[in-house]
Design a protein around this nucleic acid. Structure first.
Length: 371
RNA sequence: GGAGGAGUGGCCGAGUGGUCAAUGGCAGCAGACUGUAAAUCUGCCGGGAAUUCCCUACGGUGGUUCAAAUCCAUCCUCCUCCA
């Protein structure tokens, strides 16, 4: 794997992440396919939507179908039919989201499986090992992602575990097709973040993530953390802002030097009838669209926008038709991927700030109103 | 013609003398969602004034009662069975 920065504008970077399974032009948005597929979307459709890299989740895949199954059929790429780059999350987020089902200790975390209640043990080493066995391009270290609010003492304790886990993960990593990314935690305490950054970078990972954002904090805290951490990460390594975010979040992250993003938002919002357009959010279930013959977004070329009306899509979504959810997901994914592609284009032409203001106009304005 | 049973808010369906503008569910309306235990969750949902107020409402009408969706009479409609 290699990473090259092609252009930069301020702290924003245009680059390419090259992996054994293909190149990822950055900044990039990675659709989330937790169980090996973005909900409702097959690999061919994901490719058609413009995705260059997909994210999956080790914790979920290890429970079902099991790593041995994936390994036995030649790895995650062939198993899920996605030939391009794959990044897997370690289960660190599940330490956060399944908090009532787990117990954390110095050596790792024990979950009660959300599927059947049986105990599942994840340690830094086993997590790296399983991701390597799946043959993914990028593996994430196991980390602890504390919710907000959390006091500094507790956040500090969580960070100590995460840092120790990072060292153990780094030590267990074996040179091969799978690269390992470290994660900077530290909640919203600048001192902890700075310390986390220093200690994580010292372990010399292939890339670095900013984790622990969007865990219940107010927007300004998350933004400040990105502004603090992202620019200090090694310039020659890819930077990944985990779990973020809204279109405005992406603009902000890119401005501060982030290269990779992932978020369930476009997919989940789609299933719930919230569509992204170049003119802002469109809640397709609203009665006002019941006879609206226009496409979701006149400038979008996704399968839904090319030939279907808002009225019909509304009908499908309101009826609970799986097809409506699929089409809405294809649309939102296309929107996100086009959106980031437009921002890359802006970076390439050296007009990121001006262009972003136009490209993300409605999202930036909507956000400004809620500040 | 006779004997039973049933009619509740847009729909289904609880309630069977006061605490009932009436449990639930569905539909409808609106909102939330950020490394996915999410096709999930939340709020509103007779009308009007818009903090404990008024009006209309449990098939129709009349009655009993301080008080009725709940009891009585009668009428209407539907279902089942017998002729």
């Amino acid at each position: 794997m290699s990473f090259r920065v092609l252009h930069s504008e301020g702290k924003a970077r245009l680059g390419v992440l090259s992996t054994a399974h293909g190149d990822v032009p950055t900044p990039a948005f990675m659709p989330v396919g937790t169980r090996g597929a973005v909900k409702g979307v097959g690999p061919h459709e994901l490719e058609a939507a413009g995705a260059s890299i997909m994210l999956a989740n080790l914790y979920h895949l290890s429970l079902r179908p099991g790593i041995e199954v994936i390994e036995g059929v030649g790895g995650l790429h062939s198993f899920c039919g996605w030939p391009g780059p794959i990044l897997t999350d370690s289960g660190g987020y599940q330490v956060f989201s399944l908090s009532d089902q787990r117990r954390i200790d110095a050596e790792g975390v024990t979950f009660r499986s959300h599927l059947d209640g049986s105990p599942v043990r994840l340690t830094p080493a086993t997590v790296v090992d399983m991701q390597e066995r799946m043959g993914v391009d990028v593996a994430m270290v196991l980390d602890e992602c504390p919710p907000w609010p959390v006091d500094e003492e507790e956040a500090s304790a969580a960070l100590r575990r995460t840092t120790n886990w990072a060292r153990l993960a780094r030590e267990s990593w074996r040179e091969g097709p799978t690269e390992l990314f470290g994660i900077v935690q530290g909640s919203f305490y600048p001192r902890l973040r700075e310390s986390a950054l220093e200690q994580t970078v010292a372990l010399d990972f292939a890339g670095y993530a900013v984790g622990g954002i969007s865990v219940g904090e107010e927007r300004s805290l998350g933004r400040a953390t990105v502004e603090l951490v992202a620019p200090l990460l090694p310039a020659d390594k890819p930077r990944y802002l985990m779990g973020v975010g809204t279109p405005a979040d992406l603009v902000h992250g890119i401005r501060w030097g982030v290269d990779l993003f992932d978020c369930v938002m476009p997919a989940r919002h789609a299933r719930h009838g919230v569509l992204f357009t170049r003119e802002g959010l469109l809640r397709i279930k609203n009665a006002t669209f019941s006879t609206d013959e226009r496409p979701i977004d006149a400038r979008c070329s996704c399968p839904a926008c090319v030939r279907l009306s808002r009225a019909f899509l509304r009908h499908l979504i309101c009826s609970g038709e799986i097809t409506g959810q699929v089409l809405a997901t294809l649309h939102n994914l296309r929107f996100y991927l086009d959106f980031v592609a437009d921002l890359r284009q802006a970076l390439a032409s050296g007009s990121f700030e001006d262009s972003a203001a136009e490209i993300a106009r409605y999202y930036l304005e909507a956000e400004a109103k809620t500040d």
